[in-house]
């Protein structure tokens, strides 16, 4: 450190999650970046030059879902409330229509599934187990907008463990469980997922929230309440990553308000092995094309040469 002539550090961004070797630690959060839409609508080559190190498609369910009543979106201070309600084409259509095309992506695909009950998670994983296009499965047990039987399954450690165990029994693929922050003790839920056989924990899903229309003073969202994302939730997410990654031996995918390379750096330091970009892609669909390079710059400025050196260093 005293030597001004010290050669510059060359930072490597390579990292891995289980069987997935990742070129860099930045992936997308489910439902916020659509590789097929980006390929069709945007002029930039976001398919062959895919900006994320792995691709997580929007969550699918056993049956197609129309989603929630509009309005589904409402912007709040540095945040976005949504109540999409898991609108999706259903897992069969996803497998038939989307997977063949997604197989052409230059990165691994982490399919995201949700269920109305614990058994659904097993059935979804069973259907994906034979699909070579899918490297990993993320169990979305934490969507706040589909209270099918009272509350998100991911609020209950017993059902969290059971859903994970049924999924574990149905597939040998790398299994990620995505947790909700809308619980008293998120570590308890993370341990339940670990006990059920999860390989990895991702967090956080959106934070329960609500907005009123400023003129009518009625709920701004058709579903009354929704999930908050964006920079406003970053401190909540960072804390969740920090405490869960310290309490468990499993790798963690951190997300929640990630908007800059500095945010990525902080989530890695807090304990995430990979970091997902969500709402920020709505703000700038090309953001991800710059983040990895900016992360490398930040690491080199700080003399950090590898992701492993950074993870959990906070």
């Amino acid at each position: 450190m005293n030597n001004n002539m010290e050669p510059p550090v060359t930072a490597s961004l390579e990292t891995s999650l289980g069987p997935m070797a990742l070129e860099h630690p930045i992936i997308n959060a489910s439902g916020t970046f659509d590789a097929l839409v980006a390929d069709a609508v945007l002029a930039a080559d976001l398919f062959e030059q895919f900006p994320f190190a792995a691709y997580v498609p929007k969550t699918v369910t056993l049956q197609p879902r129309a989603g929630n009543e509009p309005h589904r979106l409402y912007e709040t201070a540095a945040g976005l409330l949504n109540s999409i309600g898991l609108a999706n084409k259903g897992i069969e259509n996803f497998i038939a229509e989307d997977l063949p095309r997604l197989a052409e992506l230059p990165v691994p695909v982490i399919a995201s599934v949700a269920g109305e009950n614990t058994a659904d998670y097993g059935r979804c994983c069973e259907m994906l187990d034979s699909r070579d296009e899918v490297t990993a499965v993320e169990l979305n047990i934490s969507c706040p907008n589909v209270e099918l039987d009272g509350k998100a399954l991911g609020c209950d450690p017993v059902r969290t463990e059971k859903a994970t165990a049924l999924a574990r029994a149905a597939t040998s693929k790398y299994l990620v469980v995505k947790l909700t922050p809308n619980v008293t003790d998120i570590v308890e839920l993370a341990k339940a997922a670990e006990a059920g056989g999860a390989d990895c924990i991702s967090l956080i899903n959106t934070v329960h929230g609500m907005a009123l229309d400023p003129w009518t003073l009625k709920p701004a969202l058709g579903h009354t309440t929704g999930g908050l994302s964006g920079p406003a939730v970053k401190p909540i997410a960072l804390r969740a990553v920090y405490i869960v990654s310290r309490a468990l031996d499993l790798p963690v995918i951190g997300m929640g308000g990630v908007t800059t390379a500095q945010d990525v750096l902080e989530f890695l330091a807090a304990g995430a092995s990979a970091v997902a970009v969500g709402t920020a892609s709505f703000r700038d669909p090309l953001l991800a094309t710059r983040l990895a390079g900016e992360l490398r710059d930040l690491m080199e400025i700080r003399g950090i040469s590898s992701i492993a050196e950074l993870v959990g260093s906070a």
Binding site: G31, T32, A38, V41, G67, R72, L73, I84, A87, S281
Partner: peptide, 13 residues
Amino acid sequence: HMACGVGACQGCV
């Protein structure tokens, strides 16, 4: 109300 503007987020239905 829109978020992505391109058809990804399903928010503007």
